[in-house]
Design a protein around this nucleic acid. Structure first.
Lengths: 203, 203
DNA sequence: TCCTATAGGCGTACAACATACGCTAACACG
DNA sequence: CGTGTTAGCGTATGTTGTACGCCTATAGGA
């Protein structure tokens, strides 16, 4: 009976994501998103209660791109690693949204599906009960932290270079480690750290 | 020759931290901090270039409370765990600053001292070279991620309760895991996850 | 003792922001 | 062809970070 909506939540999230990808996270304003959609600013509020809700939609969109189907791989470690790396890749495709992924609680369907798949792999591997709780928690913790460090942290890219030029007298081990770290790819570091964690899950 | 400064950076950071602790992170405005210091708003800019720099001072203050002296403990794992938990405790004392700890690159002296001490323990344990790089990176990654989840994430506190009331038909393992997780303390989860990681570092 | 250079303190001003409110017009259904 | 509902939006408000320029407190030299 009433006038139909002309926009879907996905379209709105896509517009916001386009703004973020193009102009950075600081450029995410209600005005900018509305303009991206070709609407007036206040029209956006017909679809979204709040700026915070808009940010949530963006996170959902990015995380929704993660393939949550159980991967086919030989060992359970490889399969879990694949699941973790899928999230890393999805987020890595939109580096500017990284800060949002934390502020916004991920109770989204994508996150649930992802967790369900990972728990399935762990269960097949004989990890159940409290050990499974800790395993999932550790994996998510490492994933979140590593993504964060990769995109904002001191140990990656520019930060490593800065540390490598430290006064070696005050922090000799840090300086040495920074130089060694420069010879390791960001991808390798992520994978190797994940391997350490998976290794620690062994019975 | 000129008029002397009446405030130290620490005093400013403390005032900002007081505002954050009392009224939340959203209440951190230049006006609020200035009022907390009993000054006019613009006077703050004599000491700080930017709001971002002010946030950096707050993070430094919180992280500066971490004891970076090498702990006395039997095994190297225990000593590393102590170092990691010291950071968790320091940040946990001011939960509202958690989002700031990530946005702001930690090249602070406290972080460097902390890293140096941890690297020392790892070196004593015979972990050197690339393995040491990966070890430090994993530890920091887990630390950052776990803190984040603990304070903003879906797997802790209220989030767990929400998940426990999920439709068990769609996500049976997630629902089961959430119920099991409810019987594990947040502290226990953090420590056990850390133990998994440390276990994985074994040669 | 007074003078002066320097920098601290702050009032005002402005642009950008999120968002409340209320209007008008478009649509679906009878 | 009405009529009710809602989309779209113009206007207005309060809050934010911060540039600018004034006044004044202070320390060192005269």
């Amino acid at each position: 009976m009433p006038r139909p909506r002309s926009l879907t939540e996905t379209q709105i999230a896509a517009a916001a994501l386009a703004v973020i990808d193009r102009d950075g996270l600081a450029a995410l304003t209600m005005r900018a998103v509305a303009k991206e959609l070709g609407m007036g600013t206040m029209s956006l509020y017909r679809y979204v209660d709040d700026r915070e809700q808009l940010e949530g939609l963006v996170v959902d969109l990015v995380l929704g791109a993660v393939d949550t189907a159980p991967p086919t791989g030989s060992s359970w470690r490889e399969r879990v690693a694949t699941m973790v790396e899928r999230v890393r890749d999805a987020v890595g495709a939109h580096p500017n949204v990284v800060p949002l992924t934390l502020t916004h609680r991920q109770g989204s369907p994508s996150s649930l599906r992802w967790g369900e798949t990972v728990l399935g792999i762990l269960t097949e591997a004989g990890i159940v009960g409290e050990r499974r709780v800790v395993a999932l928690r550790s994996l998510v913790g490492y994933l979140v932290g590593a993504i964060q460090l990769e995109h904002l942290g001191p140990l990656s890219g520019e930060g490593t270079r800065t540390m490598a030029t430290l006064p070696s007298t005050d922090f000799p081990l840090m300086a040495e480690t920074a130089q060694q770290a420069a010879r390791v790819t960001v991808d390798e570091e992520f994978r190797l750290g994940l391997a350490v964690l998976l290794n620690g899950l062994a019975p």
